[in-house]
């Protein structure tokens, strides 16, 4: 065991993993976190806590992760390179480990122009690849990025990374995934999959490279709440590939039935990706619709979650 987290145990035991996601509030409100945690508890193996996603200021990922621990859920703390240099990141990692956080998802981070502080100065001292190396170095070599030894207990994380099979250049994406595995990723959570054929092709190449044997690959999935949301994701979100047939399917559905249909689409995707070689689980991103996770996991036959 690298970190001994629940997620790591589920995956190493060979179970098909399911992870969820929780977006911290833009306030110091704890109640909303408790409420969202309630929607997820028992339905997933770990819950990602985003790090000021889309560069909007939100409650600290580490703080929310600690709250989840207290509520009996396993957090996966997300860490981006946008706002912290290597000094701040390592400092936070020491603290997170000390507080009992065991899963860490390493990201470059969304550019600040998308958020609510577009005039901020960014950092990007490291990129996600270098962050992975650094986290792995702390854990496996017990060394800081500068090479100094960690004197005392080292921070141990089950290290995650993101991958977007739908971004360009497509041909390079499997190799970039391999780079992340090489850099230190133990598990991967992909961008939301709607275009299953393309994802299947991607996974074929990943498997050909043997990357699935170096890390666990969890396919990202998400329910679509409405036709409008489908259309928005299809046209406005960079790096998102929503096939037209799904948009049309949502459009053809009566408005009051669209949420239900969206869940159905999500379940179908889960069932399809589960059959793809190399896929070790799913990461369900039901952002601001956390209450749907129970139904998705139930319909997809992912319940009950294994106790390991």
């Amino acid at each position: 065991m690298k970190a001994g987290s629940n997620l790591e145990k589920v995956l190493t035991a060979g179970y098909f993993a399911a992870t969820g996601e929780l977006g911290p509030p833009q306030s110091a409100d704890t109640a909303v976190i408790e409420k969202k945690a309630g929607y997820l508890k028992g339905y997933v193996d770990a819950v990602n806590i985003t790090d000021c996603q889309t560069a909007v200021v939100r409650m600290s990922s580490m703080a929310v992760a600690v709250m989840l621990l207290r509520l009996g859920l396993e957090p996966t703390m997300q860490m981006t390179c946008r706002d912290r240099n290597r000094i701040a990141i390592q400092s936070d990692l020491l603290g997170a480990a000390a507080l009992g956080i065991k899963n860490l998802l390493c990201l470059t981070g969304d550019h600040q122009v998308f958020g609510n502080h577009p005039t901020a100065k960014n950092v990007f001292d490291l990129d996600s690849m270098q962050l992975l190396s650094m986290v792995k170095g702390l854990r496996d070599d017990r060394r800081f990025q500068c090479g100094d030894e960690v004197k005392g207990p080292e921070p141990r994380f089950f290290i995650g990374a993101a991958a977007n099979p739908f971004a360009d250049p497509f041909d390079f994406r499997p190799y970039r995934l391999a780079k992340k595995a090489k850099a230190g990723a133990d598990f991967i959570q992909t961008q939301i999959v709607f275009n299953v054929p393309k994802f299947r092709e991607y996974m074929k190449r990943v498997v050909d490279l043997g990357v699935h044997e170096q890390c666990y690959i969890l396919a990202g999935v998400a329910p679509i709440k409405s036709f409008g949301a489908a259309r928005y994701m299809a046209t406005k979100v960079p790096g998102m590939d929503v096939p037209d047939e799904i948009v049309q399917r949502m459009k053809a559905t009566p408005k009051e039935k669209q949420a239900e249909e969206g869940i159905k689409v999500c379940v179908e995707v889960i069932q399809q990706v589960r059959e793809i070689p190399g896929v070790a689980g799913v990461h369900i991103m039901a952002i601001e619709w956390e209450e749907s996770v129970a139904e998705i996991t139930a319909q997809a036959g992912l319940l009950p979650r294994p106790a390991v």
Partner: peptide, 12 residues
Amino acid sequence: KSLLNGPCGGSQ
């Protein structure tokens, strides 16, 4: 983002 190990997932 001045990445040295790009492209990130936002390349489209």
